[in-house]
């Protein structure tokens, strides 16, 4: 039997007091999403990278005998390609989480509109969603690095730990630009563009599978502009324990600036789409 609506109010709904407190209100939403999607995520997050390492790093890499000097100091091809794959994996997660899911929340299910009807603002929504992707990436890359460690790839514990933490920044440098892109387009047809002209060339030509020096001097300069190269090179420096502080600082600044500028623009774009 239906009861009548009782307006007595034990605790009062409130406006969030700050950016973080607002984003924390969305923790339960993202946990619920995680509980719903974890089975599919296990395959893409853990099994797929393992297959790549096996096929490209171990089986194909077994044919490659190169002077460590041509492999940024890596003693085996597997040790060279492993950090590249970790960074590329971080990038892939950002693309997966920030393309179709964002379009769904904006256009198909319009969940963003329900969020904005509550006391939450676009800045809270973006922070919560970005934080979710970063945490998901740290979990995935953590497992990935453990698997690689089992292949005997690494000699340095602290370097690998730093490389793991670094993936939070690598994924950020893709999460906010891809989010900005997804919020700026009208329809999902445009995703073909960003996958074919963005993600795939970045994966292939950013030093993931071979040193960008092999590209020749002109293409090498272009590759250096790619955010993935900065992520790959820095991750590799850390796992190989051959850190050049100056270059490393440059990589970090590039990734931080890219992430921060696109973060700010993404909040503005989301507000523009939801509030009119």
């Amino acid at each position: 039997m239906a009861t009548d609506y009782a307006p007595a109010t034990p605790s009062t709904p409130t406006a969030p007091s700050g950016l973080v407190s607002g984003a924390l209100r969305m923790v339960d939403y993202w946990l619920t999403v995680a509980a719903r999607t974890w089975k599919g995520a296990v395959v893409t997050t853990f099994v797929t990278p393992f297959l790549y390492v096996l096929a490209l790093g171990v089986l194909l890499g077994g044919f490659i005998e190169a002077d460590p000097a041509t492999l940024d100091g890596a003693t085996t091809y597997l040790a060279f390609v492993a950090p590249g794959m970790v960074a590329a994996h971080s990038m892939n997660i950002a693309f997966a989480e920030m393309t179709y899911p964002v379009m769904g929340m904006l256009k198909w299910q319009r969940i963003y509109y329900s969020m904005i009807a509550s006391p939450l603002a676009p800045s809270h929504i973006v922070l919560a969603q970005v934080a979710w992707v970063v945490l998901r990436t740290l979990l995935a890359c953590g497992v990935f690095l453990l698997v690689l460690a089992a292949f005997g790839v690494f000699d340095t514990f602290w370097g690998v730990l730093a490389a793991w933490v670094l993936q939070g920044l690598v994924v950020l440098a893709f999460t906010t630009p891809v989010l900005l892109f997804s919020l700026s387009i009208r329809g999902e047809e445009s995703f073909a563009l960003i996958f074919r002209l963005g993600m795939i060339p970045l994966t292939l030509f950013s030093g993931t599978f071979f040193p960008i020096g092999n590209l020749g001097s002109v293409l090498e300069k272009i590759a250096m502009a790619s955010p993935l190269w900065h992520g790959v090179d820095l991750t590799r420096m850390l796992t190989l324990g051959r850190l050049d502080w100056g270059v490393a600082a440059l990589h970090v600044v590039y990734l931080v600036v890219l992430a921060a500028v696109c973060w700010w623009l993404a909040i503005r774009k989301l507000a523009e789409r939801l509030v009119s």
Partner: peptide, 20 residues
Amino acid sequence: TLDVELNVYDNLYVYGRYFG
């Protein structure tokens, strides 16, 4: 603007949390 992939209960639950 419901989340069609969540169940009825979870739709209400996550929304209540947005209000603190």
